[in-house]
Design a binder for these strands. Structure first.
Lengths: 211, 211
DNA sequence: ATAGGATGTGAACGGCGATTCACATCTGGA
DNA sequence: TCCAGATGTGAATCGCCGTTCACATCCTAT
């Protein structure tokens, strides 16, 4: 039966995307070569025309995720000259991404990729570290411009910002979507913004200020 | 060969504990009945003397985790009358627990438990919610005592506190232990404490206070 | 001390999923 | 146009894993 044939570049995209969706719906355990194939309208063995193994499909999924994260970063950065506004948008973009693809936080936690391929965990780690250091660089710049407080290391502020995302992802994931993640994150963002823009210049860190 | 026989209560403990360790090392995918058995020094079929199925073992693992979390809560609460000190200890206890059992955050993210048993995800969600509401109650009390600022809802402060844990778990998990999680968390705790103890009483939430 | 239930063993079954292979069909470039 | 390589198919293989079962051994209550 002549199913439409497509170039391998297209197919790889389709298959990786199908895999990402399937992981989002069924989890990594529910991801089988057969299901990927069915989702694309093909037969299991067809996968091997475009990937050497199932693991390679997973690698492609990681490429997808990496691409999405980078594109979020770009979009946020081009949206405004104000660091605070950029971070706020970046936060919202990431939340939106996680809502659309719950697979992403799951893969980030490295589940299911252990004995087989520790390299993949390393890769996710590098990705996160890169993300963090980009944010940190932005924070440092904003500190020099006095947009953010500078009595706290940029790395800590960056980590605090990034730290808003995983808990939200966890609650979203565990609640099966019933938790109102967006407003929660917005409220926490407000706190973050407040503390990040405190214009103090202390030296003693034992700051417990009543004013 | 007379391997030592033990009462089923003891064996269940051993097996659940072995499963928790195995998930911590190999991930949920690497968890097989055979491996659990070997880890306890028995033969695969022996598992079925004490559990009806592999799923029941997983249930026991969840019991273990729930017990650990509750015991952390108790220990922190009995340590000091000061809410802030209690929270600080609770944070450290949780971090210690995660370092010892990386399986816990993974299971919290619900990986691998999808099509088969959505109830388990629900259970983890309830556990987290309970945790959050206990913290929230403590925060509310502390607010009434003016130990914590009261111009922000207790739920938000509680969420911010709890939110310190998942990112730390993620970095720890992804970095394979190389990331210095404890000092990171301590620094973030400092920020949290600072913002949670700001004694202000505003009504407009647009608080961006230079003082 | 001994019977009977509880615990442990080894072999076997059945299913599922990843992968391979020989064969069919399509498609792009000379 | 036409062929050669690229793409898709269906069946078969192989290994792993959960589970069952008949049998052996141990422990405990009477």
């Amino acid at each position: 039966m002549g199913t439409n044939k497509k170039a391998t570049g297209v197919r790889r995209q389709e298959m990786a995307s199908a895999a990402l969706h399937l992981i989002s719906e069924r989890g990594l355990n529910g991801l089988s070569v057969a299901r990927i194939a069915r989702h694309v309208g093909l037969v299991p063995s067809a996968i091997y025309r475009h990937f050497k193994s199932k693991d390679e499909v997973l690698d492609a999924v990681y490429d997808l995720i990496e691409g999405k994260m980078i594109s979020n970063l770009r979009e946020a950065w081009s949206s405004s000259p104000e660091t605070v506004d950029r971070l706020h948008l970046l936060l919202r973009l990431n939340i939106r991404m996680i809502i659309e693809f719950p697979a992403i936080p799951r893969l980030a936690f490295g589940e299911g990729i252990y004995g087989t391929h520790p390299e993949r965990r390393t890769r996710m780690y590098r990705l996160i570290r890169n993300y963090l250091s980009q944010i940190q660089r932005a924070v440092a710049l904003a500190q020099r411009r006095s947009e953010l407080r500078s009595d706290v290391p940029a790395s800590v502020i960056a980590a605090s910002f990034w730290g808003l995302i995983p808990p939200a992802a966890l609650l979203w994931s565990a609640s099966e979507g019933s938790y109102d993640i967006s407003t929660l994150v917005e409220r926490e963002w407000t706190l973050f913004e407040e503390i990040a823009t405190l214009h103090r210049h202390r030296h003693g860190t034992k700051a417990v200020g009543n004013n």
